[in-house]
Simulated scan of single mutants.
Amino acid sequence: MPFTSLRPKIKTILANENDEIDSRLTEVCELLQTNIGYYDWVGFYFANEAEKTLHLRAFAGEPTDHTVIPFGKGICGQVAISNSNFVVPDVSAQNNYIACSINVRSEIVVPLFKDEKNIGQIDIDSHIADPFSVEDERFLEWVNEEVAKIL
């Protein structure tokens, strides 16, 4: 896994205060999407608590129509409520799944906490069935901890 080699690169991207936060988030998405073969789409959604919606703020991969997701809808919306990681080995087996692309076979969503509050999440789609491991979860939790430091 390239996780170990990606950590210092992510720290460098996030530490670059010359770039806007959204640019740094997009750069992190691009780094993950281009360096991890089964990360076909990577995005950060952030919560609007008043509206109970998630809003796409940065991503890498194919454009999506799903830029606003209601809490509870799809995998991302469920994570907004559960505050827990959600690994979906086979999206076709989920009845509350929002299809972003016919090529997506699996998904992992990890909540992003700031001051112990779920403020968003990182969402990864893969065109491969069941590629995500516990190592992916721990790595993405670490990514979110690093992102929270700049928010």
Rank of each mutant, 00 (worst) to 15 (best):
F59V: 08
N85I: 15
E137P: 06
D136T: 06
K9Q: 15
R7A: 12
S133K: 02
D115I: 07
V68F: 03
Q121F: 02
E135Q: 14
N48T: 08
V109H: 03
K149S: 13
I21H: 08
F46H: 09
I98M: 06
V28M: 02
A148P: 03
E145P: 02
H127Q: 14
E135Y: 11
I124L: 01
I119L: 05
G43P: 11
K149D: 10
I150S: 09
I150R: 00
S5G: 07
L31W: 03
E146S: 02
A47M: 08
L56Q: 04
A80G: 05
S5K: 13
V91N: 00
I124F: 01
Q33D: 09
P8D: 10
A60V: 05
F139Q: 00
Y97L: 02
N144Y: 04
N103K: 15
D65P: 11
L6G: 01
K9P: 00
E141Y: 11
I36R: 01
N48D: 05
K73N: 13
G120V: 09
Q121I: 09
N118M: 09
G72M: 04
P63F: 10
I75F: 05
N85W: 08
A60R: 02
E137A: 10
I124M: 01
V42P: 02
T12Q: 15
N95R: 13
N18E: 15
R105E: 14
R7W: 07
R105S: 10
C100N: 11
L56C: 02
E20L: 14
D130L: 04
F59Q: 12
S23G: 07
C29T: 02
I124A: 00
K117V: 14
F139N: 03
D90G: 02
S5T: 14
L31A: 04
N16R: 02
P131H: 06
P63K: 14
G120H: 01
D90L: 04
G72I: 05
C100K: 08
L6N: 00
I21R: 14
L112A: 06
F86M: 15
A58Y: 03
E146F: 02
V147S: 04
I150K: 00
H66R: 10
E20C: 10
N16Y: 06
V79G: 03
V143K: 07
K11H: 12
T4D: 13
I21K: 13
R24K: 11
V110P: 07
F113T: 11
L112K: 08
A58S: 06
I150Y: 04
F132I: 09
A129E: 15
A47V: 13
E141K: 11
N144W: 06
N18C: 09
E145K: 15
R57D: 07
N85L: 12
A50W: 07
L31I: 03
E137I: 13
V110W: 03
D115L: 11
T4E: 15
P2I: 13
D123K: 08
Y97A: 05
I69Q: 01
